[in-house]
């Protein structure tokens, strides 16, 4: 899981780019994220919160960070624990 790798959900349309990764299994909609070809597995209703384009998701300890580049219905998770939304701190258009 190198930074820059693009991963696809196997339960929904979600796609993410890895910004930071240390260890563990990255999941979406209850199933592992991979380089595969899109939704092939049933989504776990417990992990169906959805992803938002352009948002970053991280674990509480900040060991992984994913950027959503295509939205979908699944919830991103690391080893079964849902990732948290990481807010940008928008500047007053400085450049």
């Amino acid at each position: 899981m190198k930074p820059g790798s693009r991963l696809k959900s196997s339960t929904c349309d979600s796609e993410v780019v890895v910004i930071r990764y240390a260890a563990g299994t990255l999941q979406c909609g209850g199933a592992p994220l991979g380089e595969g070809s899109g939704a092939t597995v049933e989504i776990d209703p417990a992990f169906a919160g959805g992803t938002v384009m352009g948002k970053r998701y991280t674990d509480a300890a900040g060991t992984v960070e994913l950027l959503c580049v295509k939205p979908g219905k699944g919830t991103l998770a690391l080893d079964g624990v849902a990732l948290l939304l990481k807010e940008a701190k928008p500047l007053p258009a400085s450049d």
């Binding site: 352009g54 940008a88 928008p90």
Partner: peptide, 17 residues
């Protein structure tokens, strides 16, 4: 590095805002 610039943009700009 790509990582420097990307970090600046993601940290300070909201996508499609």
């Amino acid at each position: 590095q790509h990582a420097n610039l990307v970090s600046y943009i993601l940290g300070t700009v909201e996508f499609a805002s």
